[in-house]
Protein backbone atom coordinates (compact mmCIF):
# COMPACT_ATOMS: atom_id res chain seq x y z
CA UNK A 1 0.00 0.00 0.00
CA UNK A 2 1.41 3.32 -1.09
CA UNK A 3 -0.64 5.48 1.32
CA UNK A 4 0.51 5.80 4.92
CA UNK A 5 -2.83 6.93 6.32
CA UNK A 6 -6.35 7.91 5.36
CA UNK A 7 -5.60 11.62 5.62
CA UNK A 8 -2.62 11.17 3.34
CA UNK A 9 -4.87 9.40 0.86
CA UNK A 10 -7.46 12.18 1.02
CA UNK A 11 -4.82 14.88 0.64
CA UNK A 12 -3.59 13.38 -2.66
CA UNK A 13 -0.25 15.10 -2.30
CA UNK A 14 -1.92 18.50 -2.00
CA UNK A 15 -4.16 17.99 -5.02
CA UNK A 16 -7.05 16.45 -3.03
CA UNK A 17 -9.55 19.15 -3.98
CA UNK A 18 -9.01 18.74 -7.73
CA UNK A 19 -8.90 14.94 -7.65
CA UNK A 20 -11.92 14.40 -5.39
CA UNK A 21 -14.13 17.00 -7.09
CA UNK A 22 -13.37 15.29 -10.42
CA UNK A 23 -14.22 11.82 -9.20
CA UNK A 24 -17.11 13.00 -7.03
CA UNK A 25 -18.86 14.91 -9.81
CA UNK A 26 -18.45 11.99 -12.19
CA UNK A 27 -19.99 9.62 -9.64
CA UNK A 28 -22.85 12.07 -8.92
CA UNK A 29 -23.63 12.47 -12.61
CA UNK A 30 -23.77 8.70 -13.09
CA UNK A 31 -25.99 8.10 -10.06
CA UNK A 32 -28.28 10.96 -11.07
CA UNK A 33 -28.55 9.68 -14.65
CA UNK A 34 -29.51 6.16 -13.51
CA UNK A 35 -32.04 7.39 -10.91
CA UNK A 36 -33.69 9.86 -13.28
CA UNK A 37 -33.98 7.17 -15.97
CA UNK A 38 -35.61 4.80 -13.49
CA UNK A 39 -38.13 7.47 -12.59
CA UNK A 40 -38.76 8.22 -16.27
CA UNK A 41 -39.23 4.51 -17.01
CA UNK A 42 -41.68 4.03 -14.17
CA UNK A 43 -43.65 7.10 -15.29
CA UNK A 44 -43.77 5.85 -18.89
CA UNK A 45 -45.03 2.45 -17.74
CA UNK A 46 -47.74 4.09 -15.63
CA UNK A 47 -48.98 6.21 -18.52
CA UNK A 48 -48.83 3.22 -20.83
CA UNK A 49 -50.92 1.02 -18.56
CA UNK A 50 -53.46 3.77 -17.83
CA UNK A 51 -53.88 4.31 -21.57
CA UNK A 52 -54.30 0.63 -22.05
CA UNK A 53 -57.18 0.88 -19.62
CA UNK A 54 -58.84 3.58 -21.71
CA UNK A 55 -58.11 2.18 -25.17
CA UNK A 56 -58.39 -1.53 -24.75
CA UNK A 57 -60.16 -1.95 -21.49
Amino acid sequence: MKWGSLSEFLAMGGYGFYVWVSFGTTALCMVWEVLSLRRRGAMALRIESSEEGINHG
Partner: peptide
Amino acid sequence: GFFVAPTDFQQGEAYRIIFVH
Protein backbone atom coordinates in the same frame (compact mmCIF):
# COMPACT_ATOMS: atom_id res chain seq x y z
CA GLY B 1 -5.77 3.76 -10.17
CA PHE B 2 -5.65 4.79 -6.53
CA PHE B 3 -3.81 1.97 -4.79
CA VAL B 4 -1.51 0.34 -7.32
CA ALA B 5 -0.62 2.97 -9.92
CA PRO B 6 2.46 4.96 -8.86
CA THR B 7 2.84 8.72 -8.49
CA ASP B 8 3.68 10.58 -11.69
CA PHE B 9 7.19 12.02 -12.02
CA GLN B 10 6.09 15.53 -13.03
CA GLN B 11 2.49 15.95 -11.86
CA GLY B 12 2.49 14.10 -8.57
CA GLU B 13 -0.96 12.85 -7.56
CA ALA B 14 -2.83 15.37 -9.71
CA TYR B 15 -2.37 13.10 -12.72
CA ARG B 16 -4.89 10.63 -11.20
CA ILE B 17 -7.65 12.78 -12.70
CA ILE B 18 -6.66 11.06 -15.96
CA PHE B 19 -8.59 7.98 -14.81
CA VAL B 20 -11.90 9.82 -15.24
CA HIS B 21 -10.88 12.52 -17.68
